[in-house]
């Protein structure tokens, strides 16, 4: 009986352990496949040139247009999301501090908003675009992605603000701070690492998301100069090139895949590092 018990114990420990380590294997395998497949085609030219005339038949060129487009869209959308999201997150944690029901209702709505698929945002953005009489452009892409990432910024930032000790709120208010000063002077400073994490996180989502810009940003072989020009994005460039029957074009999609994966890896890792570095100087 006792042996059976310890056997069952060991069995489940190993089983759950395998499940856990298999996640590392899966991640390693995906990254390995992506890098192995594309590393041969990766060159400086891929990053620094735009597609030339016969690019989609295997001609010269790179994906600079898509890298720049993705970058512009992600930066623009992040700026809008910060302008709208940061005050909203601060508001939840300063002005609504004494209304816990309201707070949890707002968090509940934001979580639900986070779950809406990006293709729905894409369809909505497309309708909005037609309604406003715009054509597929950088601006339309930025607005659509901003809709997508604002809830993410608010919730991630809010999560950090929520961990700030309530005593700090009280002492600030007791010293005569208004709630606005509490929000922008105390919470903002204390929550700054969370802000950086939230921005990087949202930026990563903005760069990687394809379904929402599929309708709205259009596609072009040029680096966009103005807000009303169409813009290519890296995920869509990979997607379109992968469906090409010509092997050279497909190979370049694999190389572009490495670029995108590397960007996401860098953003993800630096988000963790930055938040760790800043949080050392903060009150716990």
């Amino acid at each position: 009986m006792r042996y059976r018990k310890s056997f069952v114990e060991l069995f489940y420990k190993i089983l759950t352990g395998i499940a856990c380590y298999s996640l590392i294997v899966i991640l390693g395998y995906i990254i390995f496949v992506i890098f192995k497949k594309g590393i041969g085609m990766l060159s400086l030219k891929m990053i620094t040139t735009v597609p030339s005339g016969g690019y989609y038949y295997g001609g010269e060129g790179g994906v600079l247009n898509a890298i720049a487009g993705s970058f512009y869209i992600a930066v623009g959308a992040t700026i809008i999301a910060v302008i709208v999201g940061v005050p909203a997150a601060l508001f939840i944690n300063s002005h609504l501090q004494h209304k816990p029901r309201m707070q949890s209702f707002i968090r509940y709505m934001l979580d639900a908003l986070w779950g809406i698929p990006s293709i729905v945002y894409g369809a909505f953005g497309f309708m909005l675009m037609i309604y406003l009489g715009m054509s597929a452009s950088l601006l339309a892409g930025i607005i659509t992605v901003a809709f997508l990432i604002t809830p993410i910024i608010i919730r991630t930032f809010d999560e950090v603000l929520n961990t700030i000790p309530k005593g700090l709120h009280e002492s600030a208010l007791a010293l005569g701070y208004t709630r606005m000063q509490l929000a922008f002077k105390v919470l903002w400073k204390q929550g700054f690492p969370g802000f950086i994490t939230a921005v990087l996180f949202a930026f990563g989502r903005g760069i990687g998301d394809a379904a929402s810009v599929l309708f709205t940003a259009g596609y072009t072989d040029l680096v966009p100069q103005y807000l009303d020009e169409p813009a290519a994005t890296l995920p869509l460039a990979i997607f379109f090139q992968l469906s090409s029957p010509i092997p050279e074009v497909r190979n370049r999609a694999y190389a572009a895949g490495i670029i995108l994966t590397a960007m996401i890896l860098i953003i993800s890792v630096s988000a963790r590092l930055v938040s760790r570095k800043f949080s050392k100087t903060n009150l716990k």
């Binding site: 990563g204 760069i207 694999y254 895949g257 996401i264």
Partner: peptide
């Protein structure tokens, strides 16, 4: 964080 297009490629 890996974008869906990368999962699709994989």
């Amino acid at each position: 964080g890996i974008p869906s297009v990368i999962y699709g490629m994989w």
